[in-house]
Every structure is written in structure tokens, then in C-alpha cells.
């Protein structure tokens, strides 16, 4: 089998790419995609840990299923928000949301 740390480094890389997307993207949808990458990185971690440390108990897989579920709910609400805002002001660029300052 591939050593565990292969997966962990893969997950770390994915997580950092996602973090970059979440923090650097201008478009709100882009930010959300970054977050999804981060969540996927977490899932790789969870499943890899499950497989390599406690394969008999499915905790890691369970956790990953919940993460996926929550991600779906989060995406639904988030995208509804984008669309609502877009209707109001024709933009989803995070930096243009500056009604409030201080």
C-alpha cells in the first residue's frame, strides 16, 4: 500500500490550494469553490486516517459523509445568497460589497 503520508501531503496541498482560492478569489462563487476544495482535502484526510489507523471502525468514513452533507447544505444556502445579492446589485465580487465601512 501507498504510505499514509502520501495521502496526507496530498490533502495538505489540496487544502492550501483551496485556502488560496478562498482567500484570494475576487468572485464569491470562486471563494466558495476554494472552500469546497478545502473540505475535500479534509475528506481525504479523514478517509486516509480511517483506512490506515482504525479500519475496523468506520468513524472516518462517517465523518466524511457528514462533511459532504453539510457541504451540500452550505452550498445551497451560499448560492442562494449569491443569487439574491446578484439580483440586487449585479455583482458578486466580494470587494464591491462595501456598503458598510469602518
Amino acid at each position: 500500500m501507498v504510505p499514509l503520508w502520501y495521502y496526507l501531503v496530498l490533502a495538505a496541498a489540496l487544502f492550501c490550494i483551496g485556502a488560496f482560492g478562498a482567500l484570494a478569489r475576487k468572485n464569491a462563487v470562486g471563494v466558495l469553490m476554494g472552500v469546497e476544495l478545502m473540505l475535500n482535502a479534509v475528506n481525504i484526510n479523514l478517509v486516509a486516517f480511517w483506512r490506515y489507523t482504525t479500519a475496523a471502525q468506520l468513524t472516518g468514513q462517517l465523518f466524511a459523509v457528514f462533511v459532504i452533507t453539510v457541504a451540500a447544505a452550505e452550498a445551497a444556502v451560499g448560492l442562494a445568497l449569491f443569487i439574491a445579492i446578484y439580483r440586487q446589485r449585479n455583482t458578486v465580487n466580494v470587494e464591491e460589497f462595501d456598503t458598510m465601512k469602518g
Binding site: 482567500l23 466558495l32 472552500v35 452550505e74 444556502v77 451560499g78 445568497l81 466580494v94 460589497f97
Partner: peptide
């Protein structure tokens, strides 16, 4: 809400 969401999700 959008700001809350983006920060919260991250």
C-alpha cells in the same frame, strides 16, 4: 449574510 457565509465556510 454573504460576508458571514464566506468567512464562516472558510
Amino acid at each position: 449574510a454573504l460576508k458571514y457565509f464566506l468567512y464562516g465556510a472558510t
